[in-house]
Amino acid sequence: MRKPKITIIGGGTGIPVILNSLRHQNVDITAIVTVADDGGSSGELRTAMQMTPPGDLRNVLVAMSDMPKLYEQVFQYRFNENDGPLSGHPLGNLIIAGIAEMQGSTFNAIQLLRRFFHVTGKIYPASEEALTLHAVFKDGHEVVGESKIADYQGMIDHVFVTNSYNDQTPQASPKVVDAIMESEMIVLGPGSLFTSILPNLVIPEIRQALLETPAEVAYVCNIMTQYGETEHFSDADHVAVLNRHLGQDVIDTVLVNIDPVPQAYMNSNQFDEYLVQVEHDFEALSQQAKRVISANFLRLENGGAFHDGELVVEELMTLIRSRGL
């Protein structure tokens, strides 16, 4: 029997949690990964080599691979702060950069590394070109660059992307649109709303594909609000922003965590960008999406609140089965 096709769209540290659990299911997985990161090691490499940033792709590779733990530790090793030009660079980022130069593109590099690390599923950068994220705030001010958005005090009205190194309209990588159109389910997130999820969706070809796909479109809502992005947001506010950027109500299903994060649990030093737990507005959610799945998706670890990948995937698979797939 043909495996159901599920495509996950996002970036950051959110989607690897879901991908790592989903790869153990009998499904055909595709990950579409943001290429708008311009901070840290990824930012330095994209500037030096005019390449798509490798960091989010690196984390997705690890999440979808059955590589031994030692290989993962080597690939994820980060040079320490007194290592001169190598300071702060994960070894995996340098490997991706080197293979991208050798193979002619980051897209080709990821396809080679997929085979090298026995990755379950397909991984595509959202675009073959590095993208620059622009945030326009409610007061009309525009901030250019993903890493600078949280520094401006204000509410974001909308975001858009441009090619970083030419004036052409941003285009989706090969096979990205086909993956969206051929999927039974599209999963957005979890992850930073304006800087991990939306940079993919505002690429015109991806946006159009999401409007046309027959797939179930599910959104895994964030557990915590995020400094500089979603302060004071309810779960319904998150969905409203997604639908507004897409141009119509595209989200079919919203997965919402209802398990409370214990008061004073969050390590505010280590996770200083996360503020308070996202509030619920089920009435507004029901007006924007066909169904809301509210359950315990919470995993508390090392002073942080994360999604439990196994619990989220369990609900996604139930949803897939309910569609007769």
Rank of each mutant, 00 (worst) to 15 (best):
E142S: 12
V177A: 03
G40T: 07
N20I: 05
V278N: 10
V217F: 02
I293S: 02
P204A: 12
V144H: 08
P199D: 07
R244M: 13
P4Q: 04
S87R: 10
E315Y: 09
V159H: 00
G304S: 14
F233E: 00
G304T: 07
S65M: 05
E279H: 14
L285S: 08
R114M: 13
L198D: 02
D38P: 01
S286Y: 08
I149V: 14
R244G: 12
V313M: 07
L211K: 15
A240G: 05
G40H: 03
E205M: 11
E315D: 11
M49S: 09
D235Y: 04
K138E: 15
D28C: 10
K175M: 13
V239A: 10
E229N: 06
T30R: 03
L188R: 01
D308V: 10
F194E: 00
P262W: 11
P125F: 06
Q270K: 15
T195W: 00
S21A: 15
D37L: 09
N59Y: 07
N26V: 11
E182L: 13
M155C: 12
I110H: 00
D28G: 09
V60A: 03
N257Q: 13
I180T: 06
S183A: 15
A209I: 07
G309F: 01
I197S: 06
N166F: 12
S127E: 03
I149T: 06
S164W: 02
M224F: 14
Q277N: 13
G55L: 03
G304C: 11
Y227P: 01
D252V: 08
H307D: 08
K138M: 14
S127M: 12
V27E: 00
S42Q: 04
G309L: 03
I123Y: 04
L210N: 04
S294T: 12
F107P: 00
T253G: 04
D178H: 11
F75L: 10
I15N: 00
S42L: 09
D139L: 12
D235M: 03
L131Q: 04
I223G: 05
G303V: 09
M64R: 07
A236W: 02
L57M: 12
M155P: 05
L19T: 06
T169H: 09
S42T: 15
E310S: 10
A36S: 12
H238Y: 11
S183L: 05
S105L: 07
Q111H: 14
L94H: 08
N166Q: 08
L255C: 12
G88P: 00
E212K: 15
E315L: 07
T132I: 15
A295N: 13
